[in-house]
Write a protein that binds this DNA or RNA. Structure first.
Lengths: 121, 121
DNA sequence: TTATCATATGAATACTTGTTCACATGATAA
DNA sequence: TTATCATGTGAACAAGTATTCATATGATAA
């Protein structure tokens, strides 16, 4: 199978070996997957959302309680919960007049723990 | 020990119990740590940088080789390598005229793998 | 030294994003 | 039903960011 050759013209002293080009093109995920992956990390890339997740580690809470705990506006929290919801990091249920948010699964915790480990080295 | 009370005035039907307020304020990391954590994830939150990391999974490479492999400008890659360097996700060494970049440690792989797991559910 | 090659960097641009404000929606209680 | 409460949402603004272009830096080779 003839793959599209990638020309390496710069770097006289060093160049990508055919071998590397092949292994890279083989294991590199699809463009769309890479995009989705970046989108996921973007969700973690905001301290307000990180705080929301930390708060939800402790208890399932409604929007206005989260807002109070984080000392922020209800609207701001609602907007961010939407982002977290779309990334399937939180889920919600209705209870009376309130909407109670909770963590979707354990990946959230694992990912945050890994990040914590990295920055505290 | 009298802690600063957090007033919960909204949500008549549901309110944060003292208990929850305490556990949240106890386990919530410092503002600065949360900020740093978000900064770390921001670095992963760009598909160009994700691609660079994936390429470096396969081999240590110089800037122009990465640019060629990703079909992007040398300047763009250099700018992004700077970001990755500042987040201590990649390291570099000089070899002749080139600067060879490589992954800093195994956290990178773990974090990316966890993210991958989440999006492929 | 000078010429050359690889990389880094600053400015500019276009694009994205977080918060606030004002208001809409939607469920509950009377 | 109507009034009320909690949440969701769109527009607007400010702040941040990725890429490109042109150029600077810095190491190597002659």
């Amino acid at each position: 199978m003839e793959k599209e050759k990638i020309k390496i013209e710069c770097c006289d002293s060093f160049h990508v070996h055919e071998e590397v080009v092949n292994s890279v093109t083989e294991m590199m995920p699809e463009e769309e997957v890479l995009y989705d992956l970046a989108e996921l990390y973007k969700v973690f890339g905001d301290s307000t959302r990180i705080k929301i997740l930390y708060v939800l580690f402790e208890a399932d809470l409604c929007v206005c309680d989260i807002a109070q705990l984080l000392n922020m506006g209800q609207s701001a929290i609602s907007h961010q919960l939407r982002v977290l919801k779309q990334a399937r990091l939180v889920k919600f249920r209705r209870e009376g007049k309130s909407v109670i948010y909770s963590l979707a699964d354990d990946h959230v915790r694992t990912i945050i723990d890994q990040g914590m480990e990295h920055i505290s080295e």
